[in-house]
């Protein structure tokens, strides 16, 4: 992908993992003339363990009666049909809740590059939310890395960003096209360094 693709395309896909200039996206502290250049999420491959565990959880009710029969427990004589249906409904509610929770964590865990700063929105669990910012003129070094079999195969990796901000290192983890992201960050840093202090362009 050449760099013009980042500047010419306006991503309309709300679930995109690599969204150049996404439409309809804003964040709380977005300044008036600040523009989102890139919105990044973890590559969908990182969701494979979750998908597998959800498939396992979804298949479990069909396996339980046969496993219990090995232990000489007849589940059908202990509970009425209505109770068994209700327990199955509970199980699928739990499975749905788990899948939805994992999806929400993935969906809201985003990295943003604007024409003014980089933003790391971390949503690690129900009770953990963290947002870190660094202005482009505080960025000192950008280092993309593609590691491992799956990273090479699906072209995703990490971008390490050293800053002079309060948080000294930002890590954009498991993002698609880390090299292009690093190049775009450096391009925005160069643009920002040519601007007068306080100017938003």
């Amino acid at each position: 992908m050449d760099e013009d693709t980042v500047h010419d395309i306006h991503s309309k896909n709300p679930f995109a993992v690599f969204a150049p200039q996404p439409t309809g996206v804003a964040f709380e502290s977005l300044a008036k003339r600040e523009k989102i250049i890139l919105l990044l999420r973890a590559h969908p491959v990182t969701l494979v363990p979750t998908i597998l565990s959800v498939v396992f959880l979804a298949a479990a009710p069909t396996l339980v009666p046969s496993i219990l029969s090995i232990l000489d427990i007849d589940i059908f004589s202990s509970f009425s049909v209505r109770q068994l249906i209700l327990m199955t409904v509970f199980w699928y509610l739990f499975t749905w809740g788990y899948a939805f929770y994992k999806f929400i964590i993935w969906y809201f865990n985003v990295y943003l590059l604007t024409n003014e700063r980089i933003i790391d929105i971390d949503f690690r669990g129900l009770l953990h939310k963290e947002t870190s910012f660094a202005h482009l003129n505080q960025i000192q070094d950008v280092n993309p890395k593609i590691i491992g079999f799956f990273g090479t195969l699906f072209h995703f990796g990490n971008v390490f960003i050293q800053t002079a901000a309060e948080k000294p290192e930002f890590e954009f983890s498991f993002i698609e096209r880390p090299n292009e992201v690093a190049r775009e960050i450096l391009e925005q840093v160069n643009k920002e360094s040519k601007e007068a202090p306080g100017q938003v362009e």
Partner: peptide
């Protein structure tokens, strides 16, 4: 309790990051 916490967290996150979804 879990579902309510998840809903509150979605509200918080959509306030932090507004998206079409």
């Amino acid at each position: 309790f879990f579902a309510f916490m998840l809903f509150k967290q979605i509200q918080l996150m959509t306030r932090e990051l507004a998206t079409p979804a």
